[in-house]
Write a protein that binds this DNA or RNA. Structure first.
Length: 418
DNA sequence: AGCATGCCTGCATG
DNA sequence: ACATGCAGGCATG
């Protein structure tokens, strides 16, 4: 491969409260970022974008393949060769930096005590403005799956069907494959061999529909016009869709239900009011927002929409962002973040984990009393690992349960039906 | 309309 | 060892 052209590191002034890439790039929005040392890398619109962050700035650089027509221009006014490209605009767009995170966090905290309680440890989470097609395929892969495995699958897709962009160290970076590249029976079969399971046919079939049965730029035409997309440029197109229409259009595809459709709306089409309700958000709605606890393990369509409507009502037009903050705060991999100072922080953390335990026991309590002891045993283990070792071993599980259960009954609120 | 079931795989748990 | 449950759902009946 010919030598790549690499820009200098540049930087944008951004506080960690406005953006924390460590959290935002790992919380299950994007599945392609790779961390090498303290730098994050991903191929994006024809280049490898590299990022690193300190307490005052976001640093970025771009690595372009030398073979393609270069986007670099040389400033005629400067003697020294000055690299000018669109990477700054791309970074601003990708992280939706035009929004003020602190102001929005404040707004959500004012209107929602639960958010006020949970959010302070999870500042700097932002909704990414990702490529719609990549978002669609990523979240088709996400069903019955976990972030680690989704990331591996997406990596395989790129390796096998995406053109090579370049390398960072030993690591090869491929562009995300196009719909044309992913359609067809052979892709289906190959993806099954690559352990995609039943998602293989969803991907191949969705790729076929998008490339053959929809107009060019159909997917992009569903973008929120207030935040036009990147890549092929904005199309003064056909639909001028609103959120509901975009959501319904996506549901026509194969392997796309309401949750996946909302993920694409939120992170790929910039519809801030889209609230993807997965099992975790459903739990949160039941635990912290008085939604009825149901015996059946599946979420009905009407319940799906009423949960979204509730969050749109209390959080407003960026409800999906607020949802993402609470979602991340609830993720196991983030719930016990390692902290530098053990003592005062551990105490605080302990208190919070106890609260979580109380809430989850409350949830369990109504559903299946016989699993309570097992749950509490599990919770204790988690608390031990979260706080770094010690626990109140002189308190029996039964004693701790008794101290938790009555309070949970007292705090039970009237059930919200439908 | 709401609900149960099967679907692929990888991993943790007992 | 082996079974079972479950992980950021969806399509089907």
């Amino acid at each position: 491969m010919p030598a790549a052209r690499v820009s200098e590191w540049r930087k944008l002034p951004v506080s960690l409260t406005e953006l924390c890439i460590e959290t935002t790039l790992r919380c299950g929005q994007s599945f392609r970022w790779r961390k090498l040392g303290d730098e994050w890398h991903m191929s994006l619109y024809g280049r490898i974008l590299s990022l690193k962050q300190d307490s005052t700035h976001l640093h970025y650089k771009a690595t372009w393949p030398a073979a393609t027509s270069t986007p670099f221009t040389t400033s005629t006014s400067a003697k020294e060769e000055t690299v000018v490209d669109d990477t700054e605009e791309l970074v601003k767009h990708y992280f939706s930096l035009k929004h003020n995170a602190a102001a929005l966090y404040n707004q959500w905290s004012q209107s929602d005590p639960n958010f006020r309680k949970k959010a302070p440890k999870f500042t700097g989470i932002r909704i990414l403005s990702q490529d719609a097609w990549e978002t669609l395929i990523g979240f088709i892969c996400s069903s019955n799956n976990n972030i680690s495995r989704i990331s591996q699958m997406i990596h395989k897709l790129c390796e096998n069907y995406g053109p090579l962009i370049g390398n960072i160290g030993d690591e090869a970076f491929h562009e995300f494959p196009t719909p044309e590249a992913l359609k067809g029976k052979e892709v289906d079969a190959h993806l099954r061999d690559l352990a995609f399971g039943y998602r293989a046919k969803y991907i191949a079939e969705t790729a076929r529909i998008v490339s053959e049965e929809r107009p060019t730029d159909w997917l992009e035409s569903l973008t929120n016009p207030n935040n036009p997309g990147w890549g092929t440029g904005h199309r003064s197109g056909l639909l001028r869709a609103n959120y509901k229409e975009a959501h319904e259009q996506l549901l026509q595809l194969v392997g796309v239900g309401p949750k996946v459709a909302d993920c694409v709306c939120l992170m790929g089409l910039s519809w801030g009011e889209a609230v993807p309700v997965d099992t975790h958000i459903w739990q949160i709605a039941q635990r912290d927002y008085s939604f009825a606890r149901v015996k059946s393990s599946s979420l009905s369509k009407s319940m799906y929409h009423s949960i979204g409507d509730h969050f749109r009502r209390i959080w407003g037009d960026q409800a999906g962002w607020a949802q993402s903050v609470l979602f991340t705060a609830n993720l196991k991999s983030f719930s016990a973040r390692p902290k530098a100072e053990p003592d005062p922080v551990a105490v605080k953390l302990q208190a919070e984990v106890c609260e979580t335990v109380t809430g989850e026991v409350e949830t369990k309590y109504k559903v299946e009393e016989d699993t309570l002891v097992g749950s509490m045993r599990q919770f204790r283990k988690r608390r031990v690992s979260a706080t770094g070792g010690t626990d109140l071993e002189n308190t029996t599980i039964e004693q701790e349960l008794i101290s938790v259960a009555p309070r949970s009954r007292k705090r039970r609120r009237p059930l919200r039906l439908s």
